[in-house]
Amino acid sequence: MIPFEYQRAAHAEEAVATVAAHPHAVFLGGGTNLVDHMKLGVAAPQMLVDVSRLPLAEVEEMRGGGLRIGATVRNSDLAAHPLVRERFPALARALLAGASGQLRNAATTGGNLLQRTRCRYFQDATTPCNKREPGSGCAAIGGWDRYHAVLGASEHCTAVHPSDMAVALLALDATVHVLGPDGARTLPLAELHRLPGDAPERDTVLAHGELITAVELPPASGMTRRSTYRKVRERASYAFALVSVAAALDLDDDAGVVRDVRIALGGVAHKPWRAERAEDTLRGAPATQESFRRAAEAEMAAAEARNGNAYKVPLARNTMVRVLRTLTEGRR
């Protein structure tokens, strides 16, 4: 038995103050990730502050057609929400591609964004891991790296971010609302997660005691409605992505030209990866297989694969092309 304190916060300010005052306290949402890590010996917090019952479980329609999603909204509820399904289909698809029905009933929006890598070395406390124990080394480098990063990795860490939801939110230009000891702030989702660099133990830019309170989607448009998510995995369900792609497309149907596009990749980097090179290549280009292929190649030109994960580079290229073709053919 590993002892720890447990407190249930009555409101967000109390939760933030409690965690900020205790260096070894953490927030507990759905618990689908944290509890596993406590059982494995990967995490050993001295205090859990339960935020799962805070009044942050609503999906609110914003002026202009955007959505504000409370941090404790369950993944299953968000995936089934009629406005999400209608206006942001990429998000609904990504949520339904994650985990299992039982886990989606427990997992929360805020917790999903903050889940940690499923790297087998990170989850095995008997192996070296810079993310788990800074300075101990990275067993994946030179080890079994089939599921590891091909973009943005460093000599200290090659783990990938596991979230499906975060990939879709990145492609939809979501923003994140955060409450901390110094007050509230808002940041683009693209700035929430970080690459490993020389500090892979830090998954996000959040300071200790900062709590995600909501995620906001911008006003819905034809582009967000023409969005989708595709996940490539080793089995049909309950598996993390080898590669995933979320995309939203603004197409001039008459001219057959891409006016605007947003693409995000999962399973390829330490954070959800915005495919900016592919986007830049596609804007103003004809919506053709050749253009899609050129954009995908431009994005993956910077990939650095190792023996075990080299398959991810062509897989990411092909998946991007397939997703873009699906959107131009009018299928969601």
Rank of each mutant, 00 (worst) to 15 (best):
A199S: 14
K39S: 15
V49I: 09
G330R: 07
D250S: 09
R332Y: 12
R331G: 14
E210N: 08
A171T: 08
A171Y: 03
D173K: 10
L169T: 03
V215D: 04
E297Y: 11
A57Y: 05
P45K: 07
V257C: 09
A264D: 00
E5S: 13
Q102P: 02
V321Y: 06
A57N: 15
A125H: 11
H193M: 08
D77Y: 10
L249H: 07
A248W: 00
G31H: 03
T18S: 12
A140N: 06
V178F: 07
E133A: 15
T213V: 10
G98L: 15
H177G: 15
D77T: 13
L67F: 07
R53D: 14
R225Q: 04
T326I: 13
G98C: 13
S76W: 15
A20I: 07
T108G: 02
T326P: 13
L206S: 05
R63Q: 15
Q7K: 12
V258T: 02
D253H: 13
K39F: 12
V167T: 03
R202G: 10
R230K: 14
E5H: 13
R283M: 09
L179K: 09
K271S: 05
F4N: 04
R120Y: 14
R322Q: 13
F240V: 07
E133T: 12
R235Q: 02
A199H: 12
N75L: 15
A79I: 00
E201I: 09
